[in-house]
């Protein structure tokens, strides 16, 4: 069986796939929670500055990851 499956490549795909493929949505979800989760909107109807900064940091991480992937595709790694 082992000559038919490249276990090391497969393991790496699975490992990094979980880190990136499940991690990025999680980061995005943290951003959403900071921006719109329970307790986000204060008594005056606005979201506190700290939460907004935190949320946009999360969204920025996702955007940078997407841009990085585009750069990776363009560089011919794909």
């Amino acid at each position: 069986m082992s000559q038919y499956i490249e276990w090391s490549a497969l393991g790496q795909v699975l490992l990094y796939g979980i880190v990136v493929g499940a991690g990025l949505p999680t980061v995005f979800a943290i951003g959403v929670r900071l921006l719109a989760g329970p307790g986000a909107v204060g008594a005056d109807g606005t979201v506190s500055r700290g939460r907004v900064i935190g949320a946009w940091t999360c969204f920025a991480v996702v955007v940078i990851a997407i841009l990085g992937a585009v750069a990776y595709i363009a560089a011919g790694g794909h």
Binding site: G17, P25, F28, A69
Partner: peptide, 9 residues
């Protein structure tokens, strides 16, 4: 996101 990550990786 999972699709994109797994395909590229």
């Amino acid at each position: 996101t999972s699709s994109a990550a797994v395909i590229l990786l």
